[in-house]
Simulated assay, not measured.
Amino acid sequence: MHTVLLVLVFSLIHPNLQGQESSGPASPTNLSASDHPWDHGEKIDIQWDDIEKNEQDKVRSYSIYSSRSANTDSFIFVGTIDSDISKYTIEKLDRKYSYYFKIIAVDKSGNESEPTVTLSAISPTRQWFDGRRFPLFIITLIFCGSVVYWIYQARTGIPLKIRKIAGLEAVDEAVGRATEMGRSILFIPGIQDMNEIQTIAGITVLSHVAKVAAEYDAKVEVPTSRSLVMTAARETVQASFLTAGRPESYNQDLVYYVTDEQFGYVAYVQGMMVREKPAACFYMGAFFAESLILAETGNTIGAIQVAGTAMPAQLPFFVAACDYTLIGEEFFAASAYLSGEPDQLGSLKGQDIGKIIVAAGIIIGVTLLTIGTVAGPESGFGSSLIDAAEYLKSVILT
């Protein structure tokens, strides 16, 4: 009796099971994978044949998976696309590995087809040129072209209009005051070595200060914390005195090395400032914690102080304690402004084109992102604007 009942129940259930198995959509066919052209080696393109028309009406979407092995349990979900699409690009892959890909059709009832897997593994390949960065290539050409153009203009003798920098305009005043008071001029080219670009910029400013001091017959004292900086500073000051027509006034003993130790150097300079009370103090270079000590000491002795650095953490101390401060890029522009060399002036003007491009990119990106957010990321228009802003940020501006 029990056996008969089991047979009847199984016969009733089995047709339903067969119906469920046959209700799934047809599997995609001819799945293939190929390397994405013109990329950085992190994308793979996959494509497959469209299913028949009568089956296509049943399919709602395709689910795509990737794996580093052919093991069915190791596939990781990548994304879902609409049924009317027959190709897809998988991004953010590692070119050190090879990948298998799997695609499953899903119908409107949520039933899944049998998976279709690529026959062989494939790894992304880095190309010589990343097509997504082509706009950045164009911007680079414009920027480099503008630099070369303005250098050429400067070399031909055409005067280039450069904005005046207040701190540099005060050099003559500071040196003149030191001459009238019979006191020295203190110049500190930072505490870094010659491999630091801020030190090089500081040495360029020193050339101008030394030239003005030679014309006024004032004494310039340059204590350094690096031996190479001392050598470069001596040659710079000597050349400036020679240019001013006062080579006999040059004294190399006024440009000297103290110590590499940060606070040992600061202790010496601070003591010298208190004893000799220089009338003008120039701080041009890379500074760290010693910036506040030096600036406060100079402020206490009543010296005219002009500072310049690209160290963001030290700028507030210089701004608070010094009479003039060259902030960040002004410091590097000062070296070009003072030297008057065509190459530096042309580079300075050419960089302005790059700044305009970056500023325009930021404004456009903010506008696109704002409009896209207001329109709603769920809408096609809003999503397109947000994607465009993301592309602008991640590909062009970075």
Rank of each mutant, 00 (worst) to 15 (best):
T373E: 09
G302M: 08
P312M: 11
G346N: 03
A320D: 14
L369A: 11
G365D: 10
D343R: 12
I304E: 03
E341T: 13
V319K: 15
Q351T: 02
K349L: 10
A333W: 08
S339Y: 08
I362A: 08
G365C: 10
S379G: 04
L385E: 08
V306F: 13
A360W: 12
A334Q: 01
I304A: 01
Q351H: 13
I327H: 07
G365S: 14
I362V: 07
A360Q: 08
C322G: 09
L368K: 04
V358K: 14
A336K: 06
E330M: 12
T309Y: 05
A375K: 15
A336D: 12
M311I: 12
L348C: 06
P342I: 05
A320F: 14
A333N: 06
F331T: 02
I327K: 00
L368T: 05
V306T: 14
I357T: 10
D343W: 15
L345I: 10
V306S: 07
D343H: 15
A310C: 06
A310V: 09
L345Q: 15
Q305I: 08
Q344N: 11
P342A: 10
G346V: 09
E330H: 07
I371W: 06
G361P: 06
S347D: 11
D343F: 09
T367D: 00
L369F: 13
T367S: 13
V306I: 15
K355W: 08
C322V: 07
I357Q: 13
Q305C: 08
G302F: 07
Q344M: 11
G328P: 06
G302R: 02
G302N: 01
